[in-house]
Design a protein around this nucleic acid. Structure first.
Length: 399
RNA sequence: GGAGAGAUUCCCGAGCGGUCAAAGGGGACAGACUGUAAAUCUGUUGGCUGAUGUCUUCGAAGGUUCAAAUCCUUCUCUCUCCA
């Protein structure tokens, strides 16, 4: 395929491609030398789930693979240990080697739902970072200045408002940049929040005599709350491994204003399809219908069309018709005795404490066989097939 | 090294000897409404207890007091300014 066309496809949906002509040069060089480009993407080693937000650069990475390039995934076991770059008060717990290994296995499984395994190189950055000696580290830190580090909005804000910044946090971008040196990245992908770090990668590469990478940033996807970016720590995400049912429900809970953005960023929908959705929204079509479409597209991407249809039916049954879900967790109880309902709900993990249970009962949030329980002193005698329900989402079937 | 300020429940933040399980906001949860949401309204938001009640909580450890989130001592951590 000719290069102009490739550029068009690869830069689709990106915010920045820097420097401007760089992508073209890299692609031309790659073609001329018949050598695939090394396209880098970093993954944080701490958490277990890949979500739709992170899937955006991952899918971009896949697009590069489709043109024959190499995906270089950097698994941040070392940078993960440096600490918590989100500046929360709790220091991120040090990951043990076992945890790192476990998370890695877990990630592989998820990543290869999107990437081609045979064109992917997974590297742990501890491999080279752990080997750096103090002199090497001092040398690395000498390549950049405090003033410039403080320019980064994220540090600037905190500095201005008196939120602590530890010295080690300054190291984080430096080590990430050094990764680019170590793997000789031609291109690095990331969210727009990574722009600073990615650009730093270019400078550090140059300082180490490596050809600087092109950086490509992609929009951040807002999470389910509609305001903050989708992230593990906010718990507002849809993981790509989630069940169709969960994906559907979560998608339906996003604010209307995000429908088109999700369609563009989180699905395979073409520009025309998105356009069509936009028009029918403008024409006054119920946004709910567009969300259903969106939810099904997401499920099709990570599961299948059939499961998408099923998820929709299930969702309608529970929420539209206020019925019961298809599959309910089953628990067996001793039918010969009576249970104190509050204690039982706690035992079944439907609530966290019996106080919470009595609160919910008072509020009419606890139902047995779809009938609200009002007496928080209720003594319950189980029968096979009974359905206990807490709120709208939690169900247990007694067997 | 010196001088100040501060650490409160999930988060932000008020409280500055009893009326404090601790105002207010955010978030979360539940109910109503709905298009599933959002917005709005109502309620809840430490544990145990049928309830009156009781136990544990205000950075940590000690102390003063009939009584401490509030006073004192030491410690830990953070911020600001000066060097």
């Amino acid at each position: 395929m000719d290069i102009q066309k490739q550029i068009e496809i690869l830069s689709k949906g990106t915010v920045d491609v820097l420097p401007e002509n760089g992508l073209k040069e890299k692609l031309e060089k790659s073609q001329k030398e018949n050598k695939p480009l090394r396209v880098k993407l970093g993954i944080d080693a701490s958490g277990p789930d890949i979500h739709l937000g992170f899937a955006i650069p991952l899918r971009k990475l896949r697009a590069f693979q489709d043109f024959g390039h190499k995906a270089v995934l950097i698994f941040g076991d070392f940078t993960g240990k440096i600490g918590d770059p989100t500046g929360k008060n709790k220091t991120r717990p040090q990951l043990t080697d076992d945890e790192v290994k476990k998370n890695l296995e877990n990630y592989k499984d998820q990543v290869f739902r999107i990437l081609k395994e045979n064109m992917t190189e997974i590297r742990l950055n501890g491999e080279w970072s752990d080997a750096l000696k103090p002199t090497d580290i001092v040398n690395l830190t000498s390549k950049f200045t405090v003033a410039r580090m403080l320019e980064r909005d994220y540090f600037f804000e905190r500095y201005k408002s008196g939120v602590p910044i530890s010295i080690h946090e300054f190291l984080y971008p430096l080590f990430q940049a050094y990764d680019s040196v170590a793997v000789k990245a031609d291109i690095e992908l990331g969210g727009t929040d990574q722009k600073f770090n990615l650009l730093l990668g270019r400078e550090i590469q140059e300082a180490y005599g490596v050809e600087p990478q092109i950086i490509m940033t992609m929009p951040l996807l807002e999470g389910l709350d509609g305001t903050r970016k989708m992230s593990k720590s906010y718990g507002n995400y849809i993981a790509i491994t989630e069940s169709p049912k969960e994906m559907f429900g979560k998608t339906m809970s996003i604010p209307d204003g995000l429908i088109l953005k999700y369609m563009t960023l989180a699905t395979n929908m073409s520009a025309e399809e998105v356009k069509r959705a936009e028009e029918s929204l403008k024409a006054g079509d119920n946004p709910r219908n567009m969300k259903v479409l969106l939810a099904k597209k997401i499920i099709s991407l990570y599961h299948s069309d059939i499961l998408a249809e099923e998820a929709e039916a299930e969702f309608n049954r529970i929420f539209k018709e206020k019925g019961l879900p298809d599959e309910i967790e089953e628990k067996s109880l001793d039918k010969s005795r009576e249970y104190k309902l509050t204690a039982l709900l706690k035992e079944l993990n439907l609530v966290e404490s019996s106080s919470e249970a009595s609160r919910l009962i008072k509020q009419g949030g606890v139902k047995i066989n779809q009938k609200a329980v009002t007496d928080f002193n209720f003594s319950y005698k189980p029968e096979s097939g009974d359905i206990l329900q807490v709120g709208k989402k939690k169900f247990v079937k007694i067997i």
